[in-house]
């Protein structure tokens, strides 16, 4: 057998093995989603989405839980978006190439790798105790915001970097200030990218359990009347239902899982479609 035909055989074998690995990862992702849909879809109807739980959380729906997660996520966005976007603008448009900015980037990358339970501890120490927010939507949202910040900063900076330098110079050469250039030219173009990245970051925050475990959630709480109330939330509800209740009610467990996964999937899909539509509009 010639050398080259052996090499070709080795190539075919390698390609098959690598392809199988790739397929395995892919099928894990799709399989998990499919399994949740398969187990949970049957329990979810209009009543499940719009009613409060009854009979020690074995019947009824999860309306207050959904509302709780929406509250938490909206407050997280309120805290994280302004700071994160401005920090991204700083890094892309203002920061000089110095040691300081190198350390800033290092800190951001490192923040993304801090375990979620550590954010939970931090939230307890700072927001719950020191700032006196107790277990509340605000304390939980601030904790989630800290965790989401690196995602928002990074996607903002990346979106801004996509924009040709010439466009900035065109505006500056017309006598526009840097701030006006950012507001009128840079942000409108980078907006879709920033929003996409931020929403993906926020959708992850919505699915997090560990950071809100001790900062925001309760096993049972009525719909919050203000941001200083504690709340129920989908991931925590799911965790409690699956592990702590004596008789886990399958409708509650799988229905909640379905709502959580479907909500996040929908956000992802909507954002992806919107973004590709935006991309088609602007092309260099």
């Amino acid at each position: 057998m010639s050398r080259s035909s052996r090499a070709r055989k080795a190539e075919a074998l390698a390609k098959t093995l690598l392809g199988m690995a790739a397929l395995l990862a892919l099928s894990a992702a799709l399989g998990f989603i499919g399994y949740i849909f398969y187990r949970g879809a049957g329990y979810v109807d209009w009543a499940f989405l719009t009613q409060a739980p009854r009979k020690f959380m074995t019947e009824g729906g999860i309306y207050p839980v959904i509302v709780g997660t929406v509250y938490l996520t909206v407050w997280t966005a309120l805290f994280a978006l302004p700071v994160g976007i401005m920090a991204g603008i700083y890094l892309s448009e203002y920061a000089p190439r110095t040691v300081t900015t190198r350390i800033m980037r290092l800190a951001i990358a490192n923040m993304a790798g801090v375990p979620s339970i550590v954010y939970g501890l931090f939230g307890v120490a700072l927001f719950v105790i020191q700032m006196g927010f107790n277990r509340s939507i605000v304390a939980g949202a601030l904790t989630l915001a800290c965790m989401t910040l690196p995602v928002i900063i990074t996607s903002t900076e990346e979106a801004l970097r996509q924009i040709p330098t010439d466009l900035r110079h065109a505006s500056l050469a017309l006598g526009a200030t840097k701030l006006r250039t950012i507001r009128k030219v840079i942000l409108p173009v980078a907006g879709p990218g920033i929003i996409t990245g931020s929403i993906l970051g926020l959708s992850r925050a919505a699915g997090e359990t560990a950071p809100i475990l001790f900062t925001a959630v309760a096993f049972f709480a009525p719909i919050a009347s203000g941001p200083l109330d504690e709340t129920m939330a989908l991931p925590y509800h799911l965790y409690i239902m699956a592990t702590q209740s004596t008789k886990p009610a399958p409708n509650m467990v799988w229905g909640t899982a379905f709502v959580l996964v479907a909500g996040i999937s929908m956000l992802n899909v909507v954002v992806a479609i919107w973004r590709s539509a935006q991309r088609r509009k602007i092309r260099w």
């Binding site: 010439d166 466009l167 110079h169 065109a170 500056l172 006598g175 200030t177 030219v185 409108p188």
Partner: peptide, 20 residues
Amino acid sequence: PVDLRRRVGQVFQKPNPFPM
């Protein structure tokens, strides 16, 4: 510089219209 650039305009090598 802002006033200077209003009075001294520039055209660049590659056309760079704003995306609007």
